[in-house]
Amino acid sequence: MTVATHPSMSDVPALDVRGLSVEFPTRKGVLTALSEVSLTIQRGEIVGVVGESGAGKSMTGMSVLGLLEPPGRISAGEIRIGGKRTDNLGESEMAHIRGRMVGAIFQDPLTSLNPLFSIGQQLIETIRLHSDRNRAEAKAHAIDLLKQVGIPGADERIDHYPHQFSGGMRQRVVIALALAGNPQLIIADEPTTALDVSIQAQITALLRELCREHGTGVMLVTHDMGVIAETADRVAVMYAGRVIEVGPVDEVLSRPKHPYTRGLMGSIPALGARVERLAQIDGAMPRLNAIPSGCAFNPRCLDAGPRCRQVRPAMVAEGKGAAEGGVACLVYDGGVQ
């Protein structure tokens, strides 16, 4: 097992997304679901991704996994996982990457597991896909993984079926499955949303611990600002298919720059509460087919000026580069007038 050395365990980031755009051709024209999204995640680093429903968080994760639903397609940009370019790979090459270089944890652990196979069968299948262990070695490793994710009585539980586990235990199994191929990156899309509130914290803590231990980078999509504050190293804020602010978590939480982020932070009621709609900001996020020109946020922005309706703000980099930290708002880029 690798020991925690964070955040720069190696110079090659676990994930490097540059200028990613995703389109959906429809009968009424092409919808742009993601527009020039850039994001890096170092090995062992946890990057929270927040934003209102429909902002494109899951879409970003699915693009990285190569699991966009057709007709959705990547129309521009590059994705690198552990330095390897993956956005232009075919399905069979991508199947080789998934599980081994990038793992996934989805929202609902019950529906994530195949009900007709024991968790041992599913673990062993995954382990053997990604290593040349034989059946017995794979089983031993599976039991070891179950112990790591904190499943009591792993030796017996390995033969049990998903329906025999509680929600929290099931999500631990899902985490074990995500780790089975020892990937350097995990896409965790709302991993605790479907769980009982009382066990959400345990699961996030487990995820954080294991990823630190294994040096795994995590893209943690969540609506829960409390989880971000406690778990993430950096946070990316998305709005209408764009990343509009990225930065270290304490900075973004305490000194948000983008007017949208400020609204988002202002509306955090208490730790652990979900942000579905923003109390501080009037209106709703625009539909994909009605994104306003200029800054997508301008109809709702209290700081907006005439320039906001004409110029689309680019990411203004801070620190190491736009994907590490920055903000996309004209206030910081020549003013709104």
Binding site: L65, L67, E91, S92, A95, H96, I97, R98, G99, R100, G103, A104, F106, D108, T111, S112, L113, N114, P115, Q122, E125, T126, L129, H130, V174, L177, A178, A180, G181, I187
Partner: peptide, 13 residues
Amino acid sequence: DFIKFARARGVKH
């Protein structure tokens, strides 16, 4: 979902 998750684990077609 379990098919999507199986694909995410690297299970082949």
